[in-house]
């Protein structure tokens, strides 16, 4: 059984039917990319896993437990971290506080700091700075780090390269690559080569449903199916 299973999920924003029967699975230790054009339901899929946008139909199963309809904080506490689009830092909290808040009440804050500053030494010099004052790349590192603490085994990562300069994207890709080596990752990424480089498998979404899936090995943007669904 896969660590994360999304089965025939239908999700809505109000009356707008966004996900129309999405099914996918992610095995433990795997990195899976969700690709597709803007507005096809990639972010909504991640939100539905966390029950931020609870599915009206279908199920989400994590580590053998049906989490559909459960409160988001309970799902997160099962070991799922979220690195959202636009990073969503608590900009008025310091870097340390952004890490501390992600640590469970019974968790070891010292160990969380070690995890974060071990993985991202660059952040150590900015521990007491408000996160809103950091550069975009540093904020992305905090966002990834925040998703990692508390013993999270799975990361849902949404558009990590969005709005970053190319050299910063490279640093973030390195960081994600290191994370992916130890965690299970479901990645939404518009940067096609980056997504293919980081992921083991991919799901291609269009109009709220999975239209193709498979191994990322050897897949290029020129492949017929990819070109058809990714071209503007």
């Amino acid at each position: 059984m896969s660590l994360l299973e999304v089965d025939d999920v239908h999700s809505y924003y109000g009356e707008s039917h966004v996900l129309r029967g999405v099914s996918l699975s992610v095995d433990r230790g795997e990195t899976v990319a969700l690709i597709g054009r803007n507005g096809v339901g990639k972010t909504t899929t991640l939100r539905s896993v966390l029950q931020l946008t609870p599915p009206r139909r279908g199920t989400v199963t994590y580590d053998g437990t049906d989490v559909t309809g459960r409160p988001t904080h309970e799902v997160a506490r099962m070991g799922i971290g979220w690195v959202p689009e636009n990073r969503r830092m608590f900009s008025h909290l310091t870097v340390d506080e952004n890490v501390r808040i992600a640590t469970p009440p019974d968790g070891d804050v010292g160990a969380a700091f070690e995890t974060v500053y071990g993985a991202f030494p660059e952040l150590e010099d900015h521990r007491d700075r408000e996160a809103g004052d950091l550069s975009g790349g540093q904020q992305q590192m905090v966002a990834i780090a925040r998703g990692l603490v508390g013993g999270n085994e799975t990361l849902l990562v949404d558009e990590p390269s969005e709005g970053l300069a190319p050299q910063i994207v490279e640093a973030v890709a390195d960081a994600l690559s290191a994370v992916a080596a130890e965690a299970t990752v479901l990645l939404v990424e518009q940067n096609f080569p980056l997504a293919m480089d980081l992921a083991d498998r991919f799901y291609l979404l269009d109009q709220g449903t999975v239209v193709a899936s498979g191994s990322t090995e050897g897949v290029t943007r020129e492949d017929e199916t990819i070109r058809r669904y990714l071209s503007a």
Binding site: A76, R88, E97
Partner: peptide
Amino acid sequence: TRYGLYIRAGSEDAEMAQALGIDIR
């Protein structure tokens, strides 16, 4: 306090706080 941290974070982005495992309700 930890609760104070929750309040400051939740004031900025309650949804993100929930996604970090905080029982915002």
